[in-house]
Write a protein that binds this DNA or RNA. Structure first.
Lengths: 125, 125
DNA sequence: TTTATATTTGAACAGATGTTCAGATATAGA
DNA sequence: TCTATATCTGAACATCTGTTCAAATATAAA
């Protein structure tokens, strides 16, 4: 992440970058979002952009499930599920609650469902 | 993609998969989306989950731009932009129109903007 | 305390991914 | 046709990523 190398004092005028529409470039730069926000947004989509993690998210649409249930549902090891759940948790895509030895995972908020349903709409065109 | 190895005739009953809530697993499997759809949805998020490509998408929020403008805006080579634009095009996230030698790229539809804005809402919590 | 269950963790390996570089197209104009 | 511009493409390389496996926690029950 934060891969792009931006040289703040290197504008189209000062160094040899080719530009056709200076105005559009200037506006796009002006309207750009902070790097930290871009990184976080990138990470959110990246974490959703893996078939195992997305399958976990989809499985949780119907309500909370424990690790071994999720593993059985999507057909991978519990260890692999646990590893991916951690990443989903880090991005606030899921959250967990403990009941005895069992940890129940749920989608963290409505936005996660929204992202999925808009994504589904987009590919149905 | 399509990484998960599913054995259709291997249910919790027939092979030794540990399951705590059989009913939840059964329901999740019943409500699962087709593999092809999951793969496409995964790919859509994966393509958006890269800082260069997401920066391109964000730059195009203000309207169409040509390759060199995009390159100048986000500060990477035109070749790299071109490579990433192709992937964005393959997923129908952007589309292009030619005017002479110049190719203008735009966001393909409203869903792309929606995904971005919901993603931004999600991280602002 | 000992045993069993549910989940997590770290290391390691194979496979995937983005950028760079050089060269190839495609269009416009002379 | 020849030259210039704008963009694309393929190969190569270094980096990143997900799974597996073995071992470590955490909780409950005996």
């Amino acid at each position: 992440m934060a891969k792009r190398k931006i040289q703040p004092d290197c504008t189209a005028e000062t160094c040899g970058v080719r530009v056709i529409h200076l105005d559009r470039v200037a506006r796009a730069k002006r309207e750009a979002i902070p790097d930290k926000v871009l990184d976080r947004l990138t990470l959110t989509f990246k974490i959703m952009g893996d078939s195992t993690r997305l399958a976990i998210i989809l499985a949780l649409r119907g309500g909370e499930m424990c690790v071994c249930d999720i593993a059985a549902t999507i057909g991978i090891s519990e260890s692999a599920v646990s590893h991916q759940l951690r990443r989903l948790r880090e991005l606030n895509l899921v959250r967990s609650r403990r009941d005895g030895q069992v940890l129940y995972y749920t989608l963290d908020d409505q936005h996660v469902l929204d992202l999925v349903s808009i994504g589904l709409k987009h590919i149905n065109e």
